[in-house]
């Protein structure tokens, strides 16, 4: 049978589903989030009954991090990559990362690297505005679902500020209350973003324009380090778009 396995979209559910597949020796042709499944004539959708299953037991922190980052990615085959990666993990155990001749290992490492890279870039490229002299607000539009990783960073760095980060593409926001952050749907909150103070933004643009050395100008280099897709939410680059 050509099984397409459905899961509810959460990381936990994905891991439990994969454990079910291993236990019952089912080889899926794909694993997809149920909301994204569009139906097919030749493939059979199947959502396992999994309540009695525990989570997969992954002891190795590094392996856990890699598959979690793959899960956060926008790669359309990410669930299958995780499935094959874990299938091999149970054979090779912690040696799995040495098996760079396996496609799933190379893919998992490359995808997780991409996610970690984007999270790192946005730790720098995220721009907050001060709204109503009360809270900081930033809008981002990342390729991968890195809002949680970014929130963890800012919860430490700006721990005594109220802040909100909106992922424009996924329509979710992270709200921080000086103690914890919560990620919720954008439509669940109302934000009045009008009352901003532009003094510091203007000063930042002055600094940004001054600090480049004319006789060393290299826009290609600038763009390769700071890809154009991020410019729309970076106040200093808006005039270049």
């Amino acid at each position: 049978m050509n099984y397409i396995i459905l899961y509810d979209g959460s990381f936990n559910n994905l891991l439990i589903t994969i454990k079910y597949l291993f236990t019952n020796n089912i080889k899926p042709i794909n694993i997809v989030k149920e909301d994204n499944f569009k139906g097919s004539l030749t493939e059979y959708p199947f959502k396992p009954e999994i309540s009695e299953f525990d989570k997969l037991n992954i002891l190795d922190k590094n392996i856990f991090k890699i598959i979690y980052y793959v899960y956060l990615s926008n790669n359309i085959n990410k669930e299958l990559v995780i499935y094959f990666f874990l299938l091999n993990y149970y054979v090779y155990k912690s040696d799995i990362l040495k098996h760079r001749n396996l496609k799933c290992v190379n893919m998992a490492l490359a995808i997780s690297h991409k996610v970690s890279r984007e999270a790192h870039l946005l730790k720098g490229f995220t721009r907050f505005k001060l709204i109503n002299n009360e809270y900081l607000y930033a809008k981002i539009k990342p390729d991968n679902d890195i809002l949680e990783l970014l929130s963890m960073h800012f919860a430490k760095r700006l721990k005594n500020e109220y802040w909100i980060i909106e992922d424009e593409g996924r329509k979710i926001v992270s709200i921080y209350n000086k103690d914890k952050f919560f990620i919720i749907d954008r439509c669940d909150i109302k934000l009045n973003l009008d009352n901003t103070d532009n003094v510091w933004e203007d000063l930042w643009i002055v600094f940004f324009k001054t600090i480049g050395i004319k006789s060393r100008e290299n826009k290609r280099c600038q763009m390769s380090f700071m890809p154009k897709k991020y410019w729309q939410n970076m106040i200093e680059m808006e005039s270049e778009l």
Partner: peptide, 23 residues
Amino acid sequence: KNTGCIGNAAINGICHSFASDGR
């Protein structure tokens, strides 16, 4: 670490923007 009011350091450093000279 952020033991004060604001700020911490990142061991690998973070670039916040790139100037017109690519630095």
